[in-house]
Write a protein that binds this DNA or RNA. Structure first.
Lengths: 341, 341
DNA sequence: AACTGTCTCGAAAACGTTTTCGTGTTGAAA
DNA sequence: TTTCAACACGAAAACGTTTTCGAGACAGTT
């Protein structure tokens, strides 16, 4: 077991100074051709690689960014990670992934732990609990220390920073309008409780579409789901009692559950009921029938977020850099599949 | 924007030495009650937190581990991440996630990049390409440097280290036997090409079960899938021409695709054909009918791997620690759902 | 008055780099 | 012979910690 070799060891072995070794390896012209060759050969032989931690300390840069997501089980978030990873790797950055598990405390702990020099910047999507509490002090604190933060998907107006979002309201509007265009009037909604920012926005889009088409909003066919424990029952009740002609679900799980319940009730999709989902995940794609859905394009969001963060990181050394915060809107797309007529 | 405060700054401000500040904050008895109070108050006021990088350099420990997975899109791997995350957090470790994208080169680059001090140890599952090439020099090198590695799921006998696996052969045997017990004899197999270690093992288990029950292995109903491009066609051909009574698929995607194809061909599942999958992912659970499957328990694998790695990390400081490498086998479970009679 | 011990504190090394600023040696020009 | 540039290299600081060791001040004991 040969431990990693350091500059000091090479210097000792070759009976030169540490500086000479360092300069030789960086091909400095200060050092004679002879010495350079000698040092480089030795370094190669012993497979010398500079210690990243020492470099980080010296440069005050870690070349590492952290992405904090509420849940890794949601396929959407894994696609975002994937996008972030790609761009980060391309630019020579590493990615630390942290899970907040939808918990405020875990979010705070993770941020505080990493903000002390471990990373250069954050990409994050708020946990449900944080959104409910509306307590963002941990984020403002980090930003005040001069560490850039990019928020995505679940964002808040209370914080000034770069953001990457989709137009949730518009996308929901489009989904609803799509159903209306098919001739449906009784369109059920499966959504989250209001404090989840995206859920609220999607509900708004749904409502807007109905109103614009002179359809009365019927609160009996709007189901707001708090926890996933009993929601299959809620869906069953909606489909069997209210019998909507179509259903718009604000996420994939809700959509596929609706599909499942429909099957159980003997309803044929899309003949008896149309279903449209949100988030173009693996479930929608592989379920049968495949589910028509609004594609959220997590990869693009991740890529964009990473690019914004890294750009800020690389530019902030420039004296006069004081760019305004931007909010990028990633376009969504309605992917028509088999669950709608 | 107030930058992070350091010991040096506090020392200067309070007109004491850096040592005194450090000791005060760690509540050393060397320092008088008075001074300690003063320093601590000041530190709290300015929200002092020690710089992690400096600590890492000093302690030669980063309290960070890296997990390298081939693909984040496979739900199984995200569950493993989730397991690793939990245990790591609990023990005060951070997790860096790297994706090899099934590429040998990316795997090598990732490892070399992080092995230079950035992390304390690796958890990894081999990429397809690495398994095909059988080139593991990057891994042995890391191990030789004294950095612990834990491999999971896709492992190799060519490397000595801690491992966490399932008994793929046995699990596949059980799945096949389960179908045989239902009275099926013509059981199709959807598997990977042989160089994917787990695919090969699962194929072996399937064969073993057939032989033990005096069923001849029919290579016409064994489909080895190389890339996912055309495999829907391959599956269609299997189901429509060979008409197996049941199908065993070695992963979730294959299983759900079989389900989809069956639907398209007008075959009712499980009435006309039974399907059993592998890996208890989100797709199997939410598809309709829900797919009977072998549960691989990624969370447990991740937790176990993280525990093994951290144990080695915390014990290796002890002089006499020279524990043998262990291979832990996580038990699998057959989860019966709706896709089998 | 000399010695001993305790209480506080600071200097300095160490972790592994990079970089600035000397400094000694050489050869050539004046 | 003196002067000066060019060349090749080393010492040391810096990044932010922790920790060992030494040392000054003071009180108490002979």
């Amino acid at each position: 077991m040969k431990r990693k070799v350091t500059l000091k060891q090479i210097a000792k072995e070759l009976d030169v100074s540490i500086s000479t070794v360092s300069k030789s390896l960086r091909n400095s012209l200060e050092i004679s051709e002879d010495t350079r060759q000698k040092v480089q050969a030795f370094a190669k032989l012993y497979n010398y690689k500079p210690n990243n931690i020492a470099l980080s300390l010296k440069n005050k840069k870690t070349k590492t960014i952290c992405i904090i997501i509420p849940e890794i089980i949601h396929h959407f978030f894994t696609t975002v990670i994937s996008g972030v990873e790609h761009v980060a790797n391309e630019k020579g950055y590493n990615v630390i992934v942290c899970l907040s598990d939808e918990s405020f405390d875990k979010e705070v702990i993770n941020m505080e732990m990493l903000a002390n020099g471990s990373i250069d910047g954050f990409i994050l999507s708020l946990s449900k609990e944080t959104q409910a509490k509306k307590d963002f002090h941990h984020i403002t604190e980090v930003i005040n220390q001069g560490m850039p933060v990019v928020m995505f998907d679940r964002v808040t107006n209370d914080i000034l920073c770069d953001k990457v979002i989709i137009d949730d309201s518009l996308a929901a509007f489009n989904a609803t309008q799509f159903l209306i265009d098919k001739g449906f009037k009784k369109i059920g909604l499966l959504t989250t409780v209001d404090y989840v920012s995206v859920g609220k926005l999607r509900t708004e889009g749904y409502t807007k579409a109905l109103l614009l088409n002179d359809i009365k909003v019927d609160y009996n066919i709007i189901v707001k789901i708090e926890d996933t424990e009993y929601f299959e029952n809620q869906v069953t009740e909606l489909l069997s009692n209210q019998k909507p002609e179509a259903v718009f679900a604000v996420n994939e799980i809700f959509a596929v559950t609706a599909l499942k319940v429909a099957h159980k009730l003997g309803l044929k999709v899309p003949q008896d009921i149309s279903i449209i989902g949100f988030t173009d995940g693996i479930i929608s794609k592989y379920s049968s029938p495949a589910i028509t859905t609004i594609s959220q394009n997590g990869i693009k969001m991740g890529e964009k977020a990473a690019r914004m963060l890294i750009e800020r990181l690389e530019n902030e050394e420039l004296e006069d850099y004081e760019e305004q915060y931007k909010t990028e809107v990633i376009e969504t797309e309605l992917i028509q599949r088999e669950s709608t007529t």
